[in-house]
């Protein structure tokens, strides 16, 4: 069966098992280095949540929520990368981190090598545990198409 029809089938015959189990949750972390040989000293969370979101912002996001929906897409890519790794998911994450860095004047001219890794958070007894389940090979920022 052609690939798009395979992707369409779960929509036409849906399972509707939303939140049946609360699976480990991914966070995308990135780092920048001067060379491809040395790992980042500090990993930063990509798009950390704001401390608070006002009721007005929540109402506005009903109609305009592109950043949040993109973050949810990246969560899907992260889950795919540990379940069935594909070049596509890795490309999408690199592309969107690189685009954000390029758009920010503080990071637009930073170190040339971009790294990312996926940290999964899960329940561990009464606490939480974190585990790095995927780390991408670094890419040169100038090689990532961001337009």
């Amino acid at each position: 069966m052609p690939r798009p029809l395979t992707l369409l089938l779960p929509a036409l015959i849906p399972s509707w098992n939303f939140f049946d189990v609360i699976a480990p949750s991914p966070r995308v972390q990135y780092g920048l280095t001067a060379t491809a040989e040395t790992e980042p000293k500090a990993w930063l969370e990509f798009r950390p949540r704001p401390e608070r979101v006002s009721l007005l912002q929540m109402a506005q996001r009903l109609l305009w929520n592109p950043e949040r929906n993109e973050s949810l897409f990246l969560t899907s890519c992260a889950e795919r990368l540990v379940q069935q790794p594909t070049r596509h998911s890795e490309d999408e994450i690199f592309k969107r981190i690189a685009a954000d860095l390029a758009a920010d004047p503080d990071t637009a001219e930073g170190p040339p090598w971009l790294w990312f890794r996926l940290v999964f958070i899960s329940r561990d007894g009464d606490g939480l545990s974190q585990e790095v389940l995927f780390e991408a090979l670094p890419r040169r920022r100038s090689d990532i198409a961001i337009r």
Binding site: P4, L7, L8, A11, L12, P14, F18, F73, S76, T86
Partner: peptide, 26 residues
């Protein structure tokens, strides 16, 4: 076009909500 978009993102862009949109559309 929905098939092209599915191929572009290798699945629904936003999981369940896009699946309902696809179901309704088809």
């Amino acid at each position: 076009l929905s098939l092209v978009i599915l191929e572009r993102f290798q699945g629904p862009y936003n999981g369940g909500s896009d699946r309902m949109g696809l179901l309704a559309l088809w």
